[in-house]
């Protein structure tokens, strides 16, 4: 019964989201639409990042590198052969890649798969031993990606980057992928695989004593999360249409870290809420960094101000509000309806 009701409510809210997006698509300005797409991409990233950091408890600092891998992969696969001939001026592109061109959807899938494979390669040495090596290796990989991308001229076009990508990414693609990611992640977390990840997070020794292969489940969580980060990279590439090795800075990872921490490490719901808040709020905070004229006073924006604020928030949340918005709890229709009922009865009194 409750299951049936929940399904109907879920479908209904997806319908509302759909209607809202349709409305937004034809009525909102370019800037607002861009923010809406950013929100979708950041939800995708945050939810998958939360899977490895929050659910499986393995501290990764890899999202910016995975974004980069996904962005490059998908861009390489959608660019037309003519465009490739035109951009690769220093060194021609490696042969099979230079003539391949696939539809956007296929390129996203390939981006996801390639990124997941990279994650698996990284996981092999890292998860063989216990300890926080994932943090260092994934952080290092971000640097190494830049080095590799700058030096593999015939694949990535070096520091020139890839230009002239077709702007495939629109409201529907970004929100479609976002809903898909949330769906897959939530289902996974609620299955035995998700429970095994949590067991490893809570106590690896006890998890292994219960027959859970910690190496395997950690690698799986990492690859699963990297898959969606790679797909998000593909989306991002075809949103901004020009990518270069230095574009995917650690800033992305840092923003995501803030999001999952504020949302509550381990809570998918929290990641979604915080992704919306931070993407929106971060946009609003941009004014700190840009020159502005405030009530007649000239204010020369200060670059880095937003990041100072964000780091302070991150530290403060860690010190004083560790469970973030949601702690480790998740949204359920049961809880939501109960909450509404409470509010209503409180209003009557």
């Amino acid at each position: 019964m409750a299951l049936y009701r929940d399904r109907i409510l879920t479908v209904f809210s997806l319908f509302i989201l759909f209607s809202f997006l349709t409305y937004a698509d034809s009525n909102f300005g370019h800037y607002t639409l861009r923010i809406l797409q950013n929100i979708a991409i950041f939800i995708t990233l945050a939810v998958s990042y939360n899977l490895i950091n929050g659910v499986a408890g393995q501290f990764s600092l890899g999202p910016n590198a995975f974004l980069a891998v996904g962005a490059y992969t998908s861009a390489i696969f959608t660019l037309s052969p003519e465009e490739k001939l035109r951009s690769f001026i220093i060194e021609p592109m490696l042969w099979p890649l230079s003539v391949i061109s696939v539809p956007f959807a296929a390129s996203l899938l390939i981006a996801g798969i390639v990124t997941a494979l990279v994650a698996i390669l990284m996981a092999m040495p890292v998860f063989r031993v216990r300890g926080d090596y994932l943090a260092i290796v994934s952080l290092g990989f971000g640097e190494v990606f830049q080095v590799l991308a700058n030096n593999s001229m015939s694949i990535t076009n070096g520091s020139l980057g890839l230009k002239g990508l077709y702007p495939y990414t629109n409201l529907w693609w970004s929100w479609g992928i976002c809903v898909f990611t949330v769906f897959c992640t939530v289902r996974l977390v609620n299955s035995s695989y998700g429970r095994a990840m949590k067991a490893v997070r809570e106590d690896e020794t006890a998890a292994e004593a219960m027959g859970i292969n910690a190496f395997r489940i950690k690698t799986f969580a990492f690859a699963f999360s990297a898959f969606f980060q790679g797909v998000a990279g593909g989306l991002l590439a075809h949103l901004i249409t020009t990518i270069s090795p230095s574009l995917f800075t650690f800033m992305f990872t840092f923003n995501l870290l803030i999001i999952i921490v504020i949302g509550g490490l381990g809570s998918t719901t929290g990641s979604i809420i915080a992704a919306i808040l931070i993407t929106w709020g971060g946009e609003a905070l941009r004014f700190f960094e840009e020159p502005a004229n405030l009530f007649g006073f000239q204010y020369d924006g200060v670059p880095g101000m937003r990041m100072v604020l964000f780091s302070v928030i991150l530290i403060l949340v860690m010190l004083f509000a560790r469970s973030g918005i949601m702690g480790r709890s998740e949204f359920t229709w049961e809880g939501f309806l109960g909450w509404i009922k409470n509010k209503l009865s409180a209003m009557k009194v």
Binding site: M210, I212, F224
Partner: peptide, 15 residues
């Protein structure tokens, strides 16, 4: 959690 090793479904089936 202790029954994880007896699970026969794949993660795709779970999703």
């Amino acid at each position: 959690i202790a029954a994880h090793s007896s699970v026969s479904y794949s993660f795709i089936e779970a999703i």
